[in-house]
Design a protein around this nucleic acid. Structure first.
Lengths: 110, 110
DNA sequence: TCAATACTTGACAATATTGCCATATTCACA
DNA sequence: TGTGAATATGGCAATATTGTCAAGTATTGA
């Protein structure tokens, strides 16, 4: 169905930014405030807040207001499983690249 | 590391389009030509070709030239596992949404 | 060699994303 | 009430993505 593919595309688009990937990675160990994230990632407060809004908007992160601060966390631990599977894919790609390079080195190509 | 997060973001960006999601889904059952994909997805040939180029550029798809046609396939079956995990996340989200709606209906909110 | 078929790609306008500054907004506390 | 701290957001320029048309490449077969 087209509707579902749009949902999925929106979801992946939410992850399609280096800072947002790093935000999610930082949240593996639990909740963090906007400030803490900004400090750890060395990014402007307004920039971090914008990216958090994107992730929150897709239901990827939860925001919990506590006094003046807002604590963000992963809405679903499955997110980390997804990132782990992605890492597996990268490793496969890197392995293939290595093999290709080794083949080239030994003149085994073409 | 920042380098890896950029790689990951690029990867997810490659999947961040409805048509590309549908292309990958069509390839679950095996190789398809550009034409076949265009027909199944009801999209212009040049448009399909562009999106295939994006997926190929990220190493997500392989292209195999055979005579006049080019057959595309997933470079790594892990891709489908990734999409399945993503589907799991959507289901969780939908379940939560359903719960929220039910709660609203019964006046259990706030 | 010529024409047809399958695909790719340059060019370009339309649209979307991003980062940052300045300005809200919300809350705590004197 | 007034001040400061934490977060969110309007506005905007810079940049990236997208779809389409037209033109290009490559292959097949007459």
């Amino acid at each position: 169905m087209t509707e579902l593919s749009r949902f999925k595309a929106d979801f992946f688009r939410a992850l399609a930014h280096p800072l947002r990937i790093r935000i999610v990675d930082e949240l593996r160990s639990g909740e963090l405030t906007v400030q803490e994230l900004g400090f750890r990632l060395g990014a402007e407060q307004s920039t971090v807040s914008r990216h958090l809004a994107v992730l929150r908007g897709r239901g990827i992160l939860n925001a919990r207001k506590e006094g003046q601060t807002v604590r963000y966390s992963a809405a679903d631990a499955t997110l980390f499983r997804l990132l782990d599977v992605a890492r597996t894919m990268f490793n496969h790609q890197l392995s293939e690249l290595q093999t290709t390079l080794a083949d080239l080195k030994h003149g085994n190509s073409r």
